[in-house]
Design a protein around this nucleic acid. Sequence first.
DNA 1: GGATGATCTGACATCGTTGTCAAGGCGTGT
DNA 2: ACACGCCTTGACAACGATGTCAGATCATCC
Lengths: 350, 350
Amino acid sequence: MITIKDVAARAGVSPKTVSRVINGEAYVRPEVRASVERVVAELNYRPNAFARSLSGSRSYLIGLFIDDPASGYAADLQHGAMMRCRDRSYHLVVEPVDLSQPDWDARVREGVAALRLDGAIVAPPICDEPALTRLFEELGLPIVLVAPSVVPPSSGTVHMDDLGAARDMTEHLIGLGHRTIGFVQGPSHHRASARREEGFRQAMARAGIDVDDSLILRGDFALRTGLELGECLLSRANPPTAIFAANDDMALGVLITAMKRGIPVPDALSICGFDDAPSSRAAWPQLTTVRQPKAEMAAAAVDILVSARLRTSPADPDAHPLLPYQLIFRDSTGAAACTPPCRHHDADAA
Amino acid sequence: MITIKDVAARAGVSPKTVSRVINGEAYVRPEVRASVERVVAELNYRPNAFARSLSGSRSYLIGLFIDDPASGYAADLQHGAMMRCRDRSYHLVVEPVDLSQPDWDARVREGVAALRLDGAIVAPPICDEPALTRLFEELGLPIVLVAPSVVPPSSGTVHMDDLGAARDMTEHLIGLGHRTIGFVQGPSHHRASARREEGFRQAMARAGIDVDDSLILRGDFALRTGLELGECLLSRANPPTAIFAANDDMALGVLITAMKRGIPVPDALSICGFDDAPSSRAAWPQLTTVRQPKAEMAAAAVDILVSARLRTSPADPDAHPLLPYQLIFRDSTGAAACTPPCRHHDADAA
DNA sequence: GGATGATCTGACATCGTTGTCAAGGCGTGT
DNA sequence: ACACGCCTTGACAACGATGTCAGATCATCC
């Protein structure tokens, strides 16, 4: 294994100078820098991460704290964070946090203490747990929250524009001629879900359509509530011609209910979801939905943590980026059966 | 941050003795051991992983090398590996390997060199890449392959019994009265998939049913081949009453084709898959399938790597465990429409 | 009682890097 | 010619653990 000394010897400089070159510090003559860089390349030298962290103030390690690391959501976050870490020559350590276990805080402490993490990314839903964010604050660990409902001070956040996405999707439905649209809400404590409803209402208001509040039902993001609330909406005397669910699982539930009742989708009923979960693609017909920039949010979180070493401004807008969403038009939405006067509408936006 | 010196001072012993206690070495008087352990608990001391790895021979780090870290399969492996790592006070580092990039080997080298990994877990499909396993061998890094098609010498493996699972599932179908059963194979290079076909044939042979080779079609694990091959099978003059696909995505394709043709599932057609992918639960009806012990395989891999420090026997059977599968009976399989004489059969095994 | 070996314990060097600090070289203004 | 500041460099001591080795203690056997 080659070390910094080998490089130093071969380049005819001191180890410290090699260290300077590696870390891009100033005050190294360009010739010397070039020569060291050449030797580094020749020997294919890689600094030992442990020595680095032991000696220096950085560990080059970022923790990703996740409730359920086996979920698709978690996988996307991991992927995005890991790739960005690699680009910035950091490494990602994924740590599961099971808040239902009594000793969860001890386990978190242990992980942070043993690894000297430079920062932590906290995924939903545990990013909304005050005890956890307090713990990180106590440990002096910079954190970035992914799509949190509440924003504690002195932590970074990454978000997507839930309101805008829901507005756009609703406008898509309205453009297809739908006027009676049902909305399946998420749980009340979930801020993002509230923003989605807000977007829905905005789009309806802009189009001058009165919202019938009895068409807005509250669910809990689980598939089975989609089944139940779908039943509710579709058994009405005047059922909606389109249903917008605040996540894909519930949309799937609505879809299954429609199939059971023999309602053809999208011919008699348009359905759209939110999340672009894997199951939205596996369903038939495939679900029109909103892609959350999960990987991008995680990558942005890494950026914030890495650069936070430099700047120490907690409320800097750079520490709270809003990432672009994308509407995914698939096969579960189509033109409304022509009850109201409707023109044909082109649906290939985004 | 408290260090080994703090503990040593408070316990009135040398740092080295504390080190001995932490690492469970022999030759420490029971009283001393107890006293040190008390102080460790009091101060809530955790050894610094970096110092440990820099000084000692272990890094307490295990790498999980994965092609597509965003897949559900990867997520399950990660979860299992991570939990077991935590129990054994190791940590898991996930490293993506993109074989399509020209410099993939340099990136792997870099990761291994910088982190001094104690071992690597290599997930499918890259565990079947000879260049990769050779690279690890060259680096002297112990590896465990997850469900590989070929087993290079001097590496551990973890497997599940694909043959037995497919046999059991086929027997389940036969027990439901099915006699004309279609089988959708995976790609030819995929050994596990071949074992699944073998299990299918064994069950059929045991039941004394002749296998019609034209009912066995080769796919490539993608959903769209499920659509196409389902079409193939269902448009026959004498279509099968049950179709067994070698993975869930293809089974889903078959399911969608059946829906399109208006064939009720499971009343007129039973379908089952393999993998217990998330989408198998999101489908309607939910798919009967085989649960692969993904998390358990990953956990077993960690065990092998951790204990391999102790024993150095490469071909030890303990280094090649076979993990138990589980049949998941859901709603896509049911009794065959009674063309052949059939008795009612109880389906609640496993 | 003294040699022997097993059981304990600590001093010290070491792992590979970075932080601190001091010092030398060089340009500039007076 | 001198003081001053900026650039550039390296010596040295950390960082926090473990490996090595030598020394101390104790029981056992001749």
